[in-house]
């Protein structure tokens, strides 16, 4: 059984790794967690965002959730807010799409247009 003592090691390690999210005004990723979203696979999508952020040690990125975004047929959905840029809404997400979004948009600043709501609307 894992023990709560391990948390002290995690704490030590985290505090040693330089800038501990001093200010969290970087990128925000908001995953829709309404009933339709959850049924369509929002949890694995959210976990994929968390995993990528952890793996790449993206310290100024926050992954969070909201209720129903209100467009059930596009679920799972997520909105990406980067400071000073327009919101980008991604639709019909999968963990694979999430990995591309993190690599191309979150890290390199190029939104993955083909996964956005605009592209889905034109289909």
């Amino acid at each position: 059984m894992k023990s709560l003592k391990e948390l002290e090691e995690i704490r030590q390690r985290a505090l040693e790794s330089v800038n501990l999210r001093k200010e969290r005004n970087g990128t925000r990723i908001v995953v829709g967690m309404g009933t339709c979203g959850i049924a369509a696979g929002a949890r694995p999508v959210l976990l994929a965002f968390l995993e990528e952020v952890k793996k790449r040690n993206l310290q100024d990125v926050i992954v969070t959730q909201t209720g129903c975004i209100g467009m059930c047929r596009f679920e799972p959905m997520a909105e990406v807010y980067k400071p000073g840029e327009d919101k980008v809404t991604y639709v019909k997400l999968t963990p694979e799409k999430v990995r591309r979004i993190v690599a191309e948009h979150i890290v390199n600043g190029r939104p993955v247009t083909e996964f956005t709501i605009g592209a889905a609307d034109q289909q």
Binding site: E6, I10, R11
Partner: peptide, 20 residues
């Protein structure tokens, strides 16, 4: 909350803590 107390200021949503 017990976890948060053990962390003494490290946010509970830190990726390593979430994984734990």
């Amino acid at each position: 909350r017990e976890v948060q107390q053990r962390l003494e200021g490290l946010p509970i949503d830190h990726p390593d803590v979430v994984e734990w």
